[in-house]
Each structure stands twice: as C-alpha cells, then as structure tokens.
Nucleic acid binder design. Sequence first.
DNA 1: AAATTCTCCTGAAGGC
DNA 2: TGCCTTCAGGAGAATT
Length: 270
Amino acid sequence: MPELPEVETTCRGIAPHITGKTVTGVVVRNAALRQPIPKELSRELKGKVIRAVKRRAKYLLLETDTGTLLLHLGMSGSLRILPVESPAGIHDHFDLQFADCSLRLRDPRRFGLVLWTHAPAAEHPLICRLGPEPLSDAFDGDRFQQQAIKRRIPVKNFIMDGKVVVGVGNIYASESLFLSGIHPHRPCNRISLARYRRLADHIKQVLTAAIARGGTTLRDFQQEDGKPGYFAQELKVYGRESKPCPNCGSLIKQMRIGQRSSFYCDRCQR
DNA sequence: AAATTCTCCTGAAGGC
DNA sequence: TGCCTTCAGGAGAATT
C-alpha cells in the first residue's frame, strides 16, 4: 500500500512526463472516492500548465498558476503515464489528459483523494496540520522524543501519527522498529532519547532504501510505468509471521496494535 | 487533550 | 464448485 516511498516513487516517475505540459482534458469515470472528486475540476484545470509536481507526506501536489491538484493514493491507488486513448479498466476512476499522454488514477478500494485548492497547498486543511517530513532535518530524535513524553500509546502507533511525523505507514513502522530493536507495543514515553535518535535514523534509512527500490509492492502498487516496486523482498519482518528473524533466527511474531497488524521479533525487540 | 472507535471500499482468502 | 464471512488498511471524523 502506498506509503511515503511509493508516493515519492510515483512523484519522481510522473514529474518528467507532465511538468510544463498543458492539461487538455479531465475524465472522471467514478467520482466516489473518499471524498467526491470536485465537479469543477475540468473547468479549473483545462488549459492550465502543470508548473511543478511535488510531494508532501503522502499527498501529491500538481501545481498550476491558479491552484493545486491534491492527489492521495489511499491504500490501493496508483498513477500511471499512458498513451492517449488507452482503454480504461474498471478501477480507472480519473484521467488527466495531455497532448501526448494521460495521467491515470487506478484505485480498486477507492480510499484515495482527488481535490482542488486555489490557496497554497500548504494551507489546505488536510495538509496544514501535518508533522515534519521524515527525510528532512526538521525530523530528528530530539523532537521525536519531546512529542512522546506527553503520550503513552504504543510506539508503533506513535510513529504512524501524522502529527508526529508523516509518511510512516504500517509496513515501514514495523521495519524501522525492528531495525531499532524496539518492541512495537512499548509505551512511547518509556523510550530513551538515545533510542529515539536511532529510531529516527532508521526511519530515514528504511524510507530511503525503499525509495531506491521503487517502493514496496504487496498487491496493488505500481510505478508510473506499470512496474512494481522491489523493496518487498528486503522486508525483514513485515508479512513474515512465523518465519525466522534475519538477526537471530527465532520466529517472527504478529500482533494487533491499534487495529493494525504488527510484525516483530520478541527476542531482538524490547 | 489524548485515546479509541468508526467509516469509507473491494479483492483475496478461508470456512463449510 | 460456490456462497458467505473475515480481513486488510490511510487517515479524517466521531466518540469516549
């Protein structure tokens, strides 16, 4: 499912194809995403030039001179660059057409978003309260721990909270906690500063490595050219319940934390 | 304020 | 073989 590395992979993949291009058409086949696709989208976008393609958290931002298109891939969404007039499948809900290609959103579970905003995207209600980017200098162990002091939820929930740090979803939460030797269920206010510094570093490390591999494909995710991401084969604990820990060989455990399945080694993670 | 539960949705997988 | 149930999950909204 798209987490930060998958969205970043998509951002880098589509940017060269649509930056500087003029939107020639907007096709909405099914507007019923998490929120309805706005009706005025075609009027707002047609004839506009895509000035830049950016990412903030798991949102993709397609900037024009008069506003920004916000895209979110939910948990099953993917964007592809296709030749014009490519036949659409059942879950291909939205196209942005250009003279020489189309940007197409496919999202079987329709948890994604397509929204339009006139104001700067940073001021949008869905974006303005987000925490720091994990790969920026604004995110480090010290600030990490300061936020944790006043909370007591399991650390796995804590690092998946978008107000603490953005982009860490279920897969990379399990992976970074494993790399850091921290048990996912440990209360977030019972972790030393030194361990938070290591955790912050490991989050940066695992996200960077996943981006380098084009993200993780479990089922739906594909890059803009249709290829899967190749980080799944490097996952150390996620989805590997009852398989040996790559560190110590004891069997990987699975438990539900905050309604999410979590994977860990109870020998390596305390 | 913080924590928990609910909600959207479809496809895969398991049970009988 | 086929139908029914359960589960997966991003993240805002609603509730405790």
